[in-house]
């Protein structure tokens, strides 16, 4: 079991982070904490991609004078990094929108506690 986890450490770490993120989104009453949970979830996925692109003993994917070699396996896979740049942008955009929502909600309701928000809406 330990060996299994150690051998695939990044996967298990991702899984644990995702569960933490989801837990935060479910269990926390504060909308800010829910948002933090969402961020953890997104970060976990970014980590997953980056970890997946890792290659033991490979170099930065930049072809320069005196690079160790020019074969594909000499470099870390650059594509997931590029994808994650996009994903981070998307994530930031969502977080930004969500924060803007929170500001408006706070202005409107005077609280960010989910229960009392729903209580106020229901009335």
């Amino acid at each position: 079991m330990i060996d299994e986890i150690a051998a695939r450490f990044p996967y298990w770490a991702t899984a644990v982070l995702i569960v933490i993120g989801l837990y935060g989104m479910i269990a926390k009453r504060s909308l800010v904490k829910k948002l933090i949970g969402m961020n953890i979830l997104q970060s976990a996925i970014i980590l997953f991609f980056v970890a997946g692109s890792l290659r033991e003993g490979a170099s930065v994917p930049i072809l320069f004078e005196g690079a160790p070699g020019a074969r594909a396996e000499d470099f870390v896979n650059p594509l997931p990094h590029v994808l994650m740049l996009t994903a981070i942008v998307v994530g930031v955009a969502i977080t930004g929108v969500a924060l803007a929502f929170l500001v408006r909600l706070r202005e409107e309701f005077g609280t960010l506690d989910e229960e009392s928000l729903l209580e106020q809406v229901r009335r």
């Binding site: 989801l22 989104m25 969402m38 969502i94 929108v97 969500a98 929502f101 909600l105 928000l117």
Partner: peptide, 13 residues
């Protein structure tokens, strides 16, 4: 507003 935020949470998941 409340519906929108909840939608955002679930949609992001």
């Amino acid at each position: 507003m409340v519906a929108g935020f909840r939608y955002l949470m679930l949609g992001t998941i």
